[in-house]
Design a protein around this nucleic acid. Structure first.
Lengths: 339, 339
DNA sequence: CTGTTAGCGCATTCAA
DNA sequence: TTGAATGCGCTAACAG
């Protein structure tokens, strides 16, 4: 049986209040401080956060819901969130929805029952109703990477449209007119990026040929298959926009395998670098997301909300939402040729 | 403010005890059952798991400590653990150590303070002393993937040595004598796999040439650099053993880039498939780990321990440890040539 | 600075 | 079956 604060009392002869105060950073006489520390050491005392949480009505824990833990992007963001929270003395409770909305619903409920002080969610697509238990419990929420269409919430997202449009304009600036896109319209970011592609093409008065739009999922498989289909086209595009990291990987694999080289035979602009960057002889030109910023900003906004709530004696402040749109930056590789 | 069981009492006129009993599956009169359900619905009542945990001394939550959330392997195992636990009505509290032992120590302490019912750890290499707080609190622990040298604990590991030896023997069976290995001796699994390579070579009476042993980390970068170094060797090996998934990726990238094709120019045996499997024209022959089994078995053993502890009225049973060694299986691709 | 007291929300005796 | 009373381990007044 783990020892409690009472054991410390019996060991030191001090009162519960004094001990509690010291453990929470309060001032006590030096000799009492020593007594307590000795007892803590001797009895291997560890605070029972459960009991503490019950009385303070705060767990110093943030719930983080991700759409897929096996996704590298999720992993990187989780990592950054963890670093930030730990710096603030907060813990994190991670739940994984495996891209399954019903699982996400259960997860949110779990977090609410666990009385987390706030929730950061990288949501599975769909309706914001999965968050209802959190709304009912007045728990601050920040969305990362994706947003809901049916409800406005605090969020950190990427300027997906501008990023994709920027990539297209860069290609156009290099003389390309026949530009293909490998995308995933069924996903939030994928749709946004496709829209960016589309508007840039239209503004430039360029034709969007249906065989140049390869729609699928954000995955290596899709990138690989799509690129292979592009390579078989009679009228091949001179450039390809890959809208996701997984797609990048598949594209490069397909090109290598077919012994088609970039940028000589075809130009490529991708999204995100990750593992790929240190490995390729010819680096990809990509639109990079400031991954760390997602985590940093997400935690920052959430903490702001949590503090607002405290100052408003426990009631969530409802007066509009903060939407932070992060800027992507273009990383110049050598995968685009001037023509 | 979220509603409590008292609000249900005021709403229904019943006593706390009756309501509590019903909420925990006890029997009540049909009309009372209806009353309670109506009140729960109306007030959006959610059990406060914190309070419940305090009195039951059980949180129905398992702590999972991983050495690196950004690692795909970790992600897959986390996913499986989550599925299993959720099936059993348990939640999971994930903490990420970022391959940093001091962070791992803080994380374990965090889990202990959060009163998790058990801990599953994919440990950062090092000493088992990071688990001391958990030992002191009598919390059941199961290790996954890696073990400690200084202390025996319940664990699920792969037959790393046999797997690597099997891969080597397969190459030898196909006539190869000059076999290189790209490995990571500084990591637990890496060292084991190297040992397997070594003993198989020695048993077959084959020379282990120092320039054929490329030691580094379990990463794409290492695989890429090592393969490039191998390709530059005057006396090139006829086959290469890649001991990790990340290394596989780097190896394939390097080969593709150099336009060296497998198995014609060089044979390759790797470890694990993951994303790679659906993408390559010529699939790699690999030793596959039964990823799901790690999660399944880990949860199974932990639950066994948790139940034993309950039956022993709260005291952990200390009578030896369970070490489950999972078998890898060889997945036949086309990356090995008979010579 | 220290100790006494009360209570967080719930499950669990034990009587009725 | 139900209810009144007790306590899980801790913090937050308040009084000393």
């Amino acid at each position: 049986m783990p020892s409690t604060i009472k054991d410390i009392r019996d060991e030191t002869g001090l009162s519960l209040a004094t001990i509690s105060k010291y453990l929470n950073g309060g001032n006590v006489l030096p000799k009492n401080k020593e007594k307590i520390e000795a007892a803590v050491e001797k009895l291997h005392y560890q605070v029972n956060e459960i009991a503490r949480g019950l009385v303070t009505n705060s767990t110093r824990t943030v719930g983080v819901s991700v759409f897929d833990v096996t996704d590298v992007f999720n992993g990187i963001i989780l990592h950054e969130i963890g670093v930030q929270l730990s710096r603030l003395g907060y813990g994190m409770l991670i739940v994984d929805s495996s891209n399954d909305q019903s699982r996400e619903e259960k997860n949110i409920r779990f977090l609410v029952n666990k009385k987390v002080d706030g929730i950061i969610s990288l949501p599975v697509a769909g309706s914001s109703s999965v968050l209802n238990p959190a709304f009912a419990a007045d728990i601050p929420i920040v969305l990362l990477d994706r947003q809901y269409r049916d409800r406005s919430l605090d969020s950190i997202t990427l300027n997906n449209r501008e990023a994709a449009a920027g990539a297209v304009n860069y290609l156009i600036g290099n003389g390309h007119k026949k530009i293909a896109v490998i995308c995933a319209k069924q996903e939030y970011t994928g749709r946004e990026r496709y829209e960016g592609f589309k508007s840039a093409m239209e503004e430039a008065g360029l034709e969007i040929r249906s065989e140049y739009v390869l729609d699928g999922t954000h995955s290596m498989e899709h990138g690989y298959n799509a690129m292979n289909r592009i390579l078989k086209l009679k009228d091949r595009p001179t450039a390809v926009l890959s809208t996701n990291y997984g797609i990048n990987l598949g594209v490069v694999m397909a090109l290598n395998e077919a012994k088609v080289s970039y940028p000589d035979d075809i130009s490529v602009v991708g999204f995100d670098n990750l593992m790929l960057s240190n490995v390729l002889k010819t680096q990809l030109t990509v639109m990079e997301q400031p991954m760390e910023r997602f985590g940093q900003k997400g935690v920052e906004i959430l903490m702001q909300r949590i503090n607002e709530k405290k100052e408003n004696n426990g009631n969530l402040v409802h007066d509009g939402h903060i939407n932070i749109v992060l800027s992507s930056r273009m990383h110049m590789g050598g995968s685009v040729k001037k023509i």
